[in-house]
Design a binder for these strands. Structure first.
Lengths: 217, 217
DNA sequence: CGCATAATACGACTATAGTCTTATGCGACC
DNA sequence: GGTCGCATAAGACTATAGTCGTATTATGCG
């Protein structure tokens, strides 16, 4: 039995995906999640053969979420579903370990083709874009690897750093001492090959689709 | 006599623009610049009726360059020429004070139309995109205004901050004391309504098209 | 079990960031 | 000639960032 997890924060779009897939590929079992936490929970408790991941989910932090999932479950194939058509971003998504990119404007036929292709072990990109995205961004791939090597605590600290929080505030949010936050910060610097917070924020902001202030969808 | 300045770092594309314009609008006088510094020099020494600005010029720092030029020469109309088709970015470009956006894929007819329209005092956008870009990003517009209010020295310091440099290193680069750098940094914080360097870097990174590490062409 | 390793946690210490005050020189502007 | 904005910068101070050493716990492995 082949099981597929649809992770998207829009119930309507989940329904649309479910409808399109149950028609074209009725043999699939479909599961759903609406945020990153429940996505991780389901991946932990169930055997999932393919994850359809929307980058804009609550708690996902866009590309961070993809890297996070890829690190926790390297054996689960991931296809990213997103409204963007930015080829550079798609290149980053593929460099971060996604096996396919499905634009939200794709037809149900294309979606079914994409899912079938990835289940068969292929890589899938929208036909009109496959030319411009074929090459992998080496530099970004290394960056994604470095970020993936962060421990869960370090990952959280980096997220808060990217939001402009002080060490003290991060400690308060995570309920740990400021000294511990600093230890995590130092560890992050070593793993990312940098030596101060501004450079960390720059790297973290490269992993984000939209500026925090204007997330509007 | 109407004079037009073509600012683009690709000699070939400058030639192409020159060719397209001299055919369709032979009454124009055309001038060229290959980087931001010489663009500013020419705007200082000559009367320019329209600037065609590529965002990816050396020293331009993408949107920073546009804001910089808009601040120094608020009376010179600017049309941005760029390879991107990202509607969000185009919206930012227009919010930062450009009067037109010309994609590099535009036909020579469209380019001539755009130049003529802006010279006539209109705003011009590619026909296929004008629907999705009509609204101005208020938040970003305010941000651009704030950045435009920076003095030249403050602007330079912010650029170096965005590159992850320490105050000491910025002082060395600009040949001023660290105390002066700190004074500028404090002034920048007040103008941008923030209170630490991380937030400044976040704002600065929103004004950049591509991450510094992956500028490729 | 005994050992190694990684992750988390934290205090002590040093370096850097950031504020405030004050002061000087310069050019623009009326 | 006075005023204003800007750039420069010193000194003194506080807050925050960042390093280092170390203790604790959990996890994997033979």
């Amino acid at each position: 039995m082949t099981t597929l997890l649809i992770a998207d924060d829009h119930p309507l779009y989940r329904d649309a995906l479910r409808g399109a897939l149950s028609l074209s590929l009725p043999a699939l079992t479909l599961t759903e999640a609406g945020d990153l936490t429940s996505t991780v929970d389901i991946l932990n408790s169930e055997d999932i053969d393919l994850l359809l991941l929307d980058l804009h989910m609550p708690g996902s932090n866009d590309l961070f979420g993809l890297i996070h999932i890829r690190k926790l479950f390297p054996d689960v194939p991931v296809a990213v579903v997103s409204g963007t058509e930015d080829t550079q971003l798609i290149s980053k998504i593929m460099s971060a370990g996604a096996l396919g990119f499905i634009p939200k404007t794709a037809s149900s036929g294309d979606i079914a083709n994409a899912v079938q292709a990835i289940l068969d072990g292929d890589v899938w990109l929208p036909p009109n874009l496959s030319d411009s995205v074929d090459e992998i961004d080496e530099e970004f791939s290394e960056l994604a690897d470095n970020v993936a090597s962060l421990t869960p605590s370090q990952y959280k600290v980096l997220c808060f750093m990217r939001d402009g929080l002080l060490n003290k505030q991060i400690g308060y949010n995570l309920d740990i001492a400021e000294a511990t936050v600093k230890a995590h910060v130092t560890a992050i610097f070593k793993k990312l090959g940098i030596n101060n917070r501004t450079q960390a924020v720059l790297i973290a902001s490269q992993l984000e689709l939209e500026p925090p202030a204007t997330s509007d969808h």
